[in-house]
Design a protein around this nucleic acid. Structure first.
Length: 301
DNA sequence: TTCCAGGAGAGAG
DNA sequence: CTCTCTCATGGA
């Protein structure tokens, strides 16, 4: 892949195995909006407009000092050899179908504080409302940005939310999660939780550290590890993953621990990628567990 | 009206 | 350790 930078417009050319739509619409990020053939979002305090034309990405930034191409590669996980990862987890005819349906979907490496806050808000909640809450918090406590008629806001800094207090956070529609978010904001802004240190930890350490926060259990910690910290062995077990493994693979009721142990031994070290394909496939495919699909998982490759 | 959503904490046993 | 109940909200 080679890249050219031209003021506010960048190109990433000769992409292999990358699909922008699948990556940004697979439920790991709550902040991207599609306008025609372009995706608008806020990364590193700037609006990015990203379009995919074949094997090329065209990126526009709202600032004169746009995000670096190397940072963008990391954000979109482009440095990863996706084909070999998908080959490693493609162990039966069921996941083969999910992989081929969403070929090119990658796990993002999103900004850490935003990811921590977003997945604290995600507990016992649905995608549409999570997006609305995050939008509301950003409008109220973030900095306004505009680009080509698109208006959006930076995600609120920890200090801003800490100063705002629980009631003001609650007013953005968070429900009972307001105190969780406020507590996390306080601990990050007063240095009790150091984000830079968290980024240097291995998976087990980072997960353990995250779970010290109120409102972060195993599932949310795994989401943060997988969607921000790049730990691809993380396996968030949400209601969908639980359903998928109970119906398709284990064929019985199972606790999250059993599901994790089975999935890690079955799919291997890149189980996080396997999870994302299974999750998005089931969500997008109402008949994901019909008789035809049930027959597939028995066909080991 | 009840159930569900990318769950977690508190309490009981 | 496991099980159960509750938490605030909006859409189905």
């Amino acid at each position: 892949m080679d890249n050219t930078t031209n003021q506010r417009q960048m190109h990433i050319k000769h992409l292999t195995d990358f699909n922008l739509k699948y990556t940004l619409e697979s439920g790991q990020s709550f902040r991207w909006n599609r306008v025609d053939d372009a995706y608008f979002g806020v990364v590193e305090s700037q609006i990015l407009k990203i379009r995919q034309k074949g094997d090329t990405l065209i990126i526009n930034s709202s600032t004169d000092k746009p995000i670096s191409t190397s940072h963008l590669h990391h954000y979109l996980d482009l440095q990863r050899e996706l084909a070999s990862i998908l080959a490693a987890v493609n162990v039966d005819a069921y996941i083969d179908r999910a992989i081929n349906r969403f070929w090119g979907m990658r796990l993002l490496n999103q900004e850490l504080w935003e990811t921590i806050a977003s997945f604290i808000l995600s507990q016992n909640n649905n995608m549409k409302r999570i997006r609305r809450i995050i939008q509301s918090l950003s409008e109220r406590f973030g900095q306004q940005l505009a680009f080509e008629g698109y208006v959006d806001y930076t995600f609120p800094m920890p200090q801003t939310l800490a100063d705002a207090g629980i009631d003001a956070i609650y007013a953005c529609g968070t429900g009972y999660r307001a105190s969780y978010l406020w507590n996390a904001a306080c601990k990050v802004s007063n240095g009790e939780l150091k984000l830079d240190a968290l980024k240097r930890m291995d998976y087990a350490e980072a997960k353990h550290e995250l779970m010290k926060l109120e409102g972060i259990g195993e599932k949310v910690a795994d989401c943060i590890c997988l969607f921000s910290l790049g730990h691809q062995t993380a396996l968030p077990v949400d209601v969908w993953i639980k359903r998928i493994f109970e119906k398709i693979y284990l064929r019985k009721r199972a606790k999250p621990r059993e599901i994790q142990e089975f999935a890690k031994s079955y799919f291997g070290e890149f189980v996080g990628y396997a999870q994302q394909y299974l999750f998005h496939y089931a969500q997008s495919q109402p008949n994901w567990a019909d008789a035809e699909h049930l027959a597939l998982c028995c066909n080991k490759k």
